[in-house]
Design a binder for these strands. Structure first.
Length: 584
DNA sequence: GCCGTTTTCGGCCCGACTGTTTTCAGTCG
């Protein structure tokens, strides 16, 4: 089994143990083990297992090391199989119902004999749930509604869409007279590819009017919770959002608290404890003495900070950008060294992989060139589909050569400040050959090679197919390497580690497709791949002028992948890009 | 299940909100 498959098993074990009512710290240990595996390279894991050194890694002890080793070598784990067999699968599904956790599910299962979602809905309808100790009419109705709404509202949302909703709300909050500071936090601020909900943090000494404004927003469909300092709402789109209003002096602590992932916050609090301090959204207080962190903060015992950055200083850590606060080892790094400057939007000087009306784009070549000029880009790469993508009106040899001539004419005309590169998003055929001959490819400035069909090939076939394309000297870069479409379509099966190795060996770029629906290659691969010499290109895959702005989503992903400007091809100046492409 | 210049047992991050309670458990992040 691969490290990610093993990590998934550990997470599944954690869920099952929760339903069993196991010790919460044991559950955390399994989840922690999964995080550790994710942050290892596959070959690192294999070396550690071979050397029997796995338990030397922080977060993995003898028990987890044994289980990981068994999963890695046999692909099976007796402990896991027995655990699965002991729990009705329907109970796991019930965890998706808001308000239902392990304990309540256990009670429902044991007292009512319910072990499936349908049975739970029926028990609510019969009024049996309300009769249980600890449950009442309201809980029953909430569960029933949760089951009904699960399909519509339980889903995650694209970062891009959530950001479009959140941005004007943050701006609106900042305009309120009562508001001193306002930010969106959570996975949105961390730039995760999808978000479950949005957290707004406001610094204000009079929360009442802020709460009222927020809950009264026209796009709010339902207010699901409303307290003095916290409210939760659901928008028409199904997106849920929380607003937390804190005293201005607490703002920086709260912003940090609600930005980091759970794992990140656990690590930060452990760091504070090691230094004799206790950290919460209320402040940073001495760990010793009477009362909880909140009470101490209210007594004025907290360290005073006005800015999030000061929190890191207080803990003796280098500043960690929000994008990195996933609990994937960033605290350990920040304890010993500064992070380099990661790539920013202003570093980009152009973008490759864009479509026009020649294939399935909505804007003409000239319109796209004008849009790139408006953005101040030095260059724009056009890469319309090739003929095998007939569904996308792919270009045949004759049309692509005409487009090359059109682009030359356009560049010579000097109407736009942006230089246009003529390329093609050429289909990788099922056997790894390309949709155009080498003779045609040689007449293009650059080539993006992508898979658009036969997604159900075996992993081995798909891997060989893509590697064959990557090895073609005419291929400048590999397009969307896994083919995933977020929230809609799974990636096809492919051994990415081998593809990355082949790309490095052949000096082929891999794109970070910046379409908010793709973000492919996933950010989790980039840091280590880049360290080994893989060059990235942040490609908007724009199908219209506005799509060029999707590079912002790609920048998010690149920062999460800890890429620096020099790791990304399209930060290079026009002359350098021309030299690079000319060399090939 | 993990971890340890308070080490091999006894801790393990912290608080808001809800619904059920009459002082708190469960859920969520």
């Amino acid at each position: 089994m691969t490290k990610n498959e093993i990590a998934e098993v550990l997470e599944e074990i954690a869920v099952l143990l929760e339903l069993k009512g196991e010790n919460p710290f044991k559950i955390r240990a399994y989840n922690g083990g999964a995080r550790v595996l994710e942050s290892l390279e596959q070959d690192e894991l294999e070396r550690l297992i071979a050397d029997e050194k796995l338990d030397s890694i922080k977060g993995i002890g003898t028990a987890l090391a044994q289980k990981i080793g068994e999963l890695h070598t046999t692909g099976q784990l007796d402990f896991f199989e027995k655990l699965k067999a002991s729990i009705a699968p329907g109970l796991v599904e019930m965890l998706d119902v808001p308000g239902l956790g392990a304990k309540k599910i256990k009670a429902i299962h044991e007292k009512l004999g319910v072990d499936m979602m349908a049975g739970l809905a029926q028990a609510c309808a019969d009024g049996r749930v309300a009769g249980l100790a600890g449950f009442g009419a309201k809980s029953q109705e909430k569960i029933a509604e949760g089951i009904r709404n699960r399909e519509a509202y339980g889903k995650r949302h694209l970062w891009w869409k959530a950001n479009e909703v959140a941005r004007p709300i943050v701006a609106g909050l900042r305009e309120l007279a009562e508001v001193e500071r306002a930010e969106a936090a959570g996975s949105l601020r961390r730039g995760m590819e999808t978000v479950g909900d949005v957290d707004f943090i406001v610094g204000s000494s009079t929360p009442g009017p802020v709460m009222a404004w927020f809950c009264g927003l026209p796009e709010v469909k339902e207010v699901t919770a409303r307290g003095e300092t916290k409210s939760s709402v659901r928008f028409g789109s199904g997106l849920q959002a929380d607003l937390r209003v804190v005293p201005p002096a607490q703002f920086a602590f709260a912003l940090h608290h609600f930005t980091g992932s759970k794992d990140h916050n656990v690590a930060m609090r452990q760091r504070a404890l090691e230094r004799g301090q206790s950290l919460s959204e209320w402040g940073l207080v001495p760990a010793e003495g009477d009362g909880m962190a909140k009470e101490k903060a209210e007594r004025g015992e907290s360290v005073i900070i006005t800015d999030e950055a000061e929190l890191w200083e207080q803990l003796g850590l280098a500043w960690v950008p929000p994008a990195l606060r996933e609990g994937m080892g960033e605290i350990e790094v920040a304890a010993s060294t500064q992070f380099p400057r990661f790539i920013e939007a202003t570093d980009l000087r152009g973008a490759f992989h864009n479509h026009t009306t020649a294939s399935d784009g909505r804007n003409t070549l000239a319109e796209m060139a004008a849009a790139a000029s408006e953005r101040g880009w030095e260059y724009l790469g056009i890469a319309d589909h090739s003929k095998a993508s007939f569904q996308a009106n792919g270009l045949d040899e004759e049309r692509v050569l005409k487009q090359v001539a059109d682009i030359r004419k356009l560049n010579a005309g000097g109407a736009y400040s942006t230089h246009i590169f003529s390329g093609s998003e050429v289909d990788i055929l099922t056997d790894g050959r390309l949709d155009f001959s080498d003779e045609i490819l040689a007449q293009l400035d650059y080539v993006v090679a992508s898979v658009h069909n036969a997604f159900s090939q075996s992993e081995e076939e798909m891997t060989q197919r893509i590697i064959r394309a990557v090895e073609n000297p005419h291929v400048t870069m590999l397009g969307h390497p896994t083919g995933r479409v977020l929230l809609r379509r799974e990636a096809y099966k492919v051994d990415l580690a081998k593809v990355i190795d082949a790309a490095i060996a052949n000096e082929t770029i891999i794109e970070l497709n910046a379409s908010p629906w793709r973000l492919d290659l996933d950010w989790r691969w980039w840091q280590k791949a880049a360290e080994r010499g893989l060059l990235c290109s942040i490609n908007p895959d724009a199908h219209e002028c506005a799509g060029l702005d999707h590079v912002a989503a790609g920048i998010n992903a690149a920062r999460k992948g800890r890429l620096e400007a020099h790791n990304v091809f399209n930060t290079r100046a026009l002359a350098d890009v021309q030299a690079y492409l000319g060399k090939r």
